[in-house]
């Protein structure tokens, strides 16, 4: 069994991104979108050592998965923080060199404040508490049990 994809131990802090590295928040209507797939825009923020500064935004409406990946690449995003995201989409983003922290909820200010204080875990959506439920590529529903039976 792979380690859980969502776990408080693998949540990101500003140190993970480093100074000048770009963090994107996938937003919809003033807060993180419930789903990455339906996010209307990304807001780009950079940690400057003492706080976050907004570096602009980009519209995602109307773009498919690959169009969205292209936007993140063009905006040189290092870390994407978003709401719910499927395992396949996460794999594609990570294959493109983008770190992903999905299953986060809250307004942009709250999320950035939590990220700055290493308290992103407090904003995880219900059911995503990092108890090994999150699945990696190749596993299907029930595969955990099947492996255990073997």
């Amino acid at each position: 069994m792979q380690p859980p994809a969502i776990n408080t131990a693998c949540l990101f802090t500003p140190d993970h991104t480093g100074h000048g590295e770009r963090v994107a928040l996938a937003c919809c209507g003033g807060r993180l979108a419930a789903l990455w797939d339906t996010a209307e825009c990304i807001e780009i923020h950079v940690w400057n050592g003492s706080g976050w500064s907004c570096q602009g935004s980009s519209i995602l409406t109307g773009l498919g998965l690959h169009g969205r990946v292209d936007v993140l690449r063009k905006m040189r995003v290092r870390l994407l923080i978003c709401g719910a995201m499927s395992g396949c989409v996460r794999n594609i983003l990570e294959a493109n060199g983008i770190m992903v922290q999905p299953w986060i909820t809250g307004s942009q200010d709250v999320v950035l404040a939590a990220l700055g204080k290493n308290r992103l875990a407090s904003l995880l959506m219900p059911g995503c508490g990092g108890r090994g439920r999150c699945r990696r590529e190749g596993q299907t529903r029930g595969s955990k049990n099947q492996k255990m039976r073997r």
């Binding site: 419930a34 789903l35 909820t105 959506m125």
Partner: peptide, 10 residues
């Protein structure tokens, strides 16, 4: 919206 994560939530 934080529980249901549906394509309609946003």
């Amino acid at each position: 919206r934080d529980v249901f994560h549906s394509s309609l939530c946003d």
